[in-house]
């Protein structure tokens, strides 16, 4: 029983981490689907989301605009709600700028897209360092979602519950958007066959711009919610893009629920190894990836992979 009590918080941490990983991975996957580009800058845009939130939450973030004072004067709860909307929009605009740069690589060797987004990741990380400094920063959080909750004898961080709940809400909304709206149908059709959607009268250039902005906004949202868990550091982006990559391979490229399940799995693995063998917590993720590619290359819910005969 003691063992279980000890295990439970780590499992719950794993769930919170996994759901946020899934959110990052789903945005990453949307971009792969429609653009056929592996966006290595996805993690840097995740980090940028946290930094934008920092600047909008507190004057310490270095935002000198007069209009920002209106925001800083609001109660912290409202400020947080507004930041959860504004910061992802800001990151989406940056992401759309990156998409414009990427256009010439579409339909060419995927290496060009990889190189360009890798370069963008380095540039973004350095820009973050120049703007906000190299040291770890903290985003003030509304007191209603911080502190501890007691479940029986168990002390648990309230924020992890908020993070899990918020990630579930976002994943649910994303699913509804993709499955129930005409835009979702266009995105899925565009990911399957871009030529055909053009021949149906869809402006593919605009669709791609939108999907890239949308995918990076999801990364930014995850970045803001992850900030109190991971801390806000310039190179935090790398910590985010790697699990996203592992998750889409593990879940099966193109599979929505595959990504969610794989996200939870990776979150648990990282959470539990973090508890018992801290040094192994990152390696564990890669071992998982190697096992999947070796024994089931299509991932958990993916279609038959090119790696399988």
């Amino acid at each position: 029983m003691d063992f279980l009590l000890y295990l439970l918080p780590h499992l719950l941490n794993g769930v919170a981490l996994g759901l946020l990983f899934a959110l990052i991975a789903l945005g990453f996957m949307l971009i792969i689907g429609v653009m056929e580009v592996i966006n290595l800058a996805h993690g840097s845009l995740f980090a940028l989301g946290a930094y934008f939130a920092l600047s909008l939450m507190t004057p310490d973030g270095g935002l000198k605009l007069g209009i920002a004072q209106l925001l800083f004067d609001l109660p912290i709860g409202w400020r947080y709600v507004i930041v959860l909307i504004l910061a992802p929009i800001g990151v989406a605009v940056v992401g759309m700028g990156l998409e414009v740069c990427l256009r010439r690589t579409y339909g060419k060797d995927p290496l060009y897209g990889l190189l360009l987004t890798f370069g963008a990741a380095l540039v973004l990380e350095e820009l973050i360092r120049l703007t906000w400094g190299p040291t770890e920063r903290f985003i003030p959080m509304p007191p209603s979602i911080t502190g501890a909750v007691f479940i029986g004898d168990l002390i648990y961080s309230k924020y992890r519950f908020f993070a899990s709940g918020f990630a579930i809400l976002m994943i649910g909304l994303l699913w509804l958007f993709l499955e129930k709206t005409p835009y979702g149908a266009l995105i899925k059709a565009g990911a399957h066959d871009s030529e055909m959607v053009r021949a149906l009268g869809v402006n593919l250039t605009r669709l791609r711009l939108f999907v890239f902005g949308f995918g990076t906004a999801l990364a930014a949202i995850a970045g803001i919610v992850m900030a109190p868990i991971w801390g806000v550091r310039p190179h935090v982006g790398v910590d985010a893009v790697v699990p996203a990559f592992v998750i889409i391979v593990l879940g099966g490229v193109g599979s929505f629920w595959g990504a969610v399940i794989a996200g939870l799995l990776v979150g648990m693995v990282v959470g539990l190894t973090g508890a018992y063998a801290t040094d192994w917590s990152l390696i564990a993720m890669y071992i998982l990836l190697i096992l999947v590619v070796t024994f089931r290359a299509r991932g958990l819910l993916g279609k038959k992979s090119v790696l399988e005969l």
């Binding site: 149908a185 899925k188 059709a189 399957h192 066959d193 030529e195 055909m196």
Partner: peptide, 19 residues
């Protein structure tokens, strides 16, 4: 098109609605 090119992951209704 000769290979129809219907999006397999969408329902018939959604394939038609985007057109």
């Amino acid at each position: 098109p000769d290979d129809r090119r219907i999006c397999p992951t969408l329902t018939v209704a959604r394939n038609l609605s985007i057109a």
